[in-house]
């Protein structure tokens, strides 16, 4: 009883799980990247952990790509996702820079 003209799922049935997992991982990995970066900078973690931070950023970008392609996002959203990935890369650098600035100014 299925009229083929009606059933138009934007998302394939077996794509739901990978979408949920990849979108959750976007933030998990993103969080790890930002967390490890900051932790190394404030000396909670040792210096050697820094490459792992960037590794997590790469994983984040990959998950974002997977998620976007599984959801068949449009051109506009695709561009927005690329910008988001780059934004995330820069975010902790900018934030740490500002924090450190304020800290230095106030330690006198």
């Amino acid at each position: 009883m299925i009229d083929p003209s009606v059933i138009r799922p934007e998302i394939a049935l077996d794509a739901f799980l990978p979408i949920f997992v990849s979108s959750a991982l976007v933030l998990v990995f993103g969080g790890f990247y930002v967390g490890i970066y900051t932790a190394v900078k404030v000396n909670i973690l040792k210096k050697w952990a820094m490459p792992f931070a960037y590794l997590f950023w790469i994983l984040t970008a990959y998950c974002l790509y997977t998620m976007g392609s599984l959801m068949h996002v449009g051109d506009f959203t695709a561009k927005a996702l690329v910008i988001a990935a780059i934004g995330l890369l820069l975010l902790p650098h900018a934030v740490y820079y500002m924090q450190d600035r304020v800290h230095k100014e106030n330690e006198h």
Binding site: T38, A39, V42, N43
Partner: peptide, 14 residues
């Protein structure tokens, strides 16, 4: 929310 998380981490570490 990520920023709030770093905030705590940063102040604690410093």
């Amino acid at each position: 929310l990520v920023a709030m998380f770093i905030h705590v981490l940063y102040d604690w570490g410093k």
